[in-house]
């Protein structure tokens, strides 16, 4: 049985990775999951300088999902390299670092700094986090700006560059093509869908930031549709995510066109979820006579 897939220059032992922001820096989950078993670990999004994040409450559950407004809190690239990366280097699994910036210069500088570090195998560029001020959001919602920022980052790194797309756009295929033309090796989608929750009695928003990003099973149908649309629009591989809770969900993403998948909110629900999903994919392949996971990619029958 063959589970290996290629994402850009990265050869993954299996097509299952963690979704950025849901797995800390790996260490938090190493008690529950064998990190060597994972296709890749995608760490919590980093910026050049540490970020404090949004005021609480930052989390609220909604039907079959959750809203979060963490606000990109992170320890900064410097501390990550010094304090967290040595732990991850102990494992054979691939390490993909998610990063973001407030300007094109910051994106480039962050990518440059990360590219020189031993133990970082790929970069995932967050152009889509919905939690920052509106002005910042345009990196992920205006295809011309997306092209510009991805091109700038492409110039400074030889690492596999994955661009994470926002679902909060009218036409995801246009965004995908802009990132591909700018030199992205792969695309990951979807990031969370902007939403909000209100307390009927107090008439106040339930999140400190008022709005947040929706994730979990509630977003899966939207994510599948967007993966399918992007698969038809680009040639680069897709990392599909959005509400994957079990192996069957993952298989559905492969069929829609994803080469790999990322598991996010499920980690919060069950800390051992990602290991169970990898085992479940193997079981599915055995039970359904699928010798190579690549056979599933984009195999939707219409």
């Amino acid at each position: 049985m063959n589970l290996s897939v290629d994402i850009g220059k990265l050869k993954l032992n299996n097509p299952v990775m963690t979704a950025s922001g849901t797995f800390g820096y790996g260490e938090e989950y190493s008690e529950f999951v064998d990190l060597d078993r994972l296709g890749a670990v995608v760490v919590k999004g980093l910026s050049l300088q540490p970020r404090e994040g949004n005021p609480p409450p930052r989390i609220i559950e909604t039907p079959a999902g959750m809203l979060n407004a963490i606000g990109l809190q992170n320890i900064g690239i410097g501390r990550f390299v010094k304090e967290k990366l040595p732990f991850l280097r102990r494992f054979g699994t691939k390490v993909i670092v998610n990063f973001f910036g407030d300007s094109i210069e910051e994106y480039s500088e962050a990518a440059r700094r990360l590219s020189g570090e031993e133990g970082i195998h790929g970069l995932e560029m967050n152009i889509s986090c919905p939690n920052k001020e509106a002005g910042w959001c345009i990196f992920g919602t205006d295809p011309r700006v997306t092209f510009e920022v991805v091109s700038a980052v492409r110039k400074v790194t030889d690492l596999t560059l994955i661009v994470k797309l926002s679902p909060n756009v009218t036409d995801i295929a246009t965004m995908a093509r802009a990132a591909e033309e700018a030199g992205a090796d792969a695309l990951s989608l979807i990031n969370t869908i902007t939403g909000m929750a209100i307390d009927a009695f107090t008439r106040k928003p339930k999140l400190g930031n008022i709005t947040g990003g929706l994730s979990g099973p509630a977003v899966k149908p939207v994510a599948l549709r967007m993966v399918w649309e992007v698969h038809k629009a680009v040639k680069v591989p897709i990392v599909g995510m959005g509400g994957i809770m079990n192996a069957q969900d993952a298989i559905e993403f492969f069929i829609a066109g994803a080469t790999a998948v990322a598991v996010g909110t499920a980690n919060f629900v069950k800390p051992a979820a990602i290991g169970d999903i990898i085992n479940g994919i193997e079981r599915f392949m055995t039970d359904n006579a699928v010798p190579d996971v690549k056979e599933l990619i984009g195999s939707l029958i219409t």
């Binding site: 922001g21 849901t22 909110t265 980690n267």
Partner: peptide, 22 residues
């Protein structure tokens, strides 16, 4: 007390403001 998702320090959802930051 604060609303939380993971319970093990990964999601950064349950922060409280302290003199040394969240």
């Amino acid at each position: 007390e604060e609303r939380m998702a993971c319970g093990i320090g990964a999601c950064l959802g349950c922060v409280i403001k302290t003199v040394n930051g969240y």
